[in-house]
Simulated assay, not measured.
Amino acid sequence: MTGSIGFRHPELRARVCSVLTAAMRADNTAIDTLVESADGLDAHTADFLRHARRLVLACAAALSTVLDVHQPVAEPDAPRVCRECGGHECRTVNGILHVLNAYAARSTEIDRAEAWRRADAYFNARGGPAALVAVEDIGDGYAARAFTPASGLNGPIVVVDRRTGRLTQWPPMPREALIEQYRRYLDGLR
């Protein structure tokens, strides 16, 4: 289960971001209500469930910090290497992936509704008249366009990555061209 840092790091980053997103979406009030109403829970299980969201957030944030240190950097005329270890294979990244695989911790993909929420926040965070946001599935992500009376749909495109939720801005282009360009972009990250 080893692999180059350039290939493994984005996969691990996506999984950690997915865990953070899932934990942030969880509602502590709903968890507390469920724990209180559940019959037969022992005190340790109830205590764990009450604190699970905070614990998951802390662990995922700690893993994110490790990934900030152990990230791929490009050497001139050479494959990517780990910034901390200096090698093409990072034992830290591979070890974390091995543990996540052993416990079946998988990424949760961003759905269309979450992509729209993120794109709407992006396009409408600057103030001014509210823009209507349209989102379409492009395979590896969701392409979002904002409609304003001044520009119609000719403004920039924001792609919300399906695996990580990361937003990237693209110039206006046809759907098929965007799909091809975005795949090339993702291949460059691996």
Results as ranks from 00 to 15, higher is better:
Q71P: 01
G127S: 04
F123C: 02
D111R: 02
T168L: 09
G6T: 04
A177N: 13
R166W: 01
M24V: 10
L20D: 02
L189R: 10
R145H: 00
S64P: 11
H9T: 04
Y103A: 13
T65M: 14
V66H: 10
L49M: 11
L100N: 03
R91V: 14
Y103M: 15
D39N: 08
R163T: 02
Q71C: 11
A146C: 05
Y185I: 07
D47V: 05
F123G: 01
E89L: 12
D187P: 02
C90G: 09
R83A: 15
P129A: 12
L12P: 06
D39F: 11
G165Q: 00
D68A: 10
L12N: 01
L34A: 10
A131M: 11
V35R: 00
G87K: 14
Q169G: 01
A121L: 09
W170G: 00
R91K: 13
V66K: 11
I157A: 11
V69A: 12
S18C: 08
P171C: 04
V135G: 04
T29H: 05
E136V: 12
A46M: 07
R175W: 02
V56Q: 09
T92A: 06
V159G: 00
M1V: 12
E136T: 14
R163V: 01
I96G: 07
I157E: 13
G152N: 04
C82D: 01
L132Q: 09
V16L: 05
F123K: 04
N94I: 06
C17W: 14
L97C: 06
A130W: 07
P172M: 00
A121I: 07
G95Q: 03
G127N: 05
L153F: 15
S37D: 10
L55A: 10
Y122H: 12
E84H: 13
F7W: 08
M24W: 14
R118D: 03
A43V: 15
R53W: 07
F123R: 05
Q169F: 01
A22Q: 11
I157M: 12
D27R: 02
E180V: 11
V66A: 09
G188P: 03
R162H: 07
G40Y: 01
T168F: 11
L20P: 05
R15W: 03
S4K: 05
D120V: 00
F123S: 02
A60R: 11
Q169H: 04
R126D: 10
L167M: 01
V160C: 05
L41S: 02
E84G: 06
D111Y: 02
D77A: 09
A121P: 09
D68Q: 13
R117Y: 11
V35S: 00
P79E: 13
R118A: 05
G152S: 03
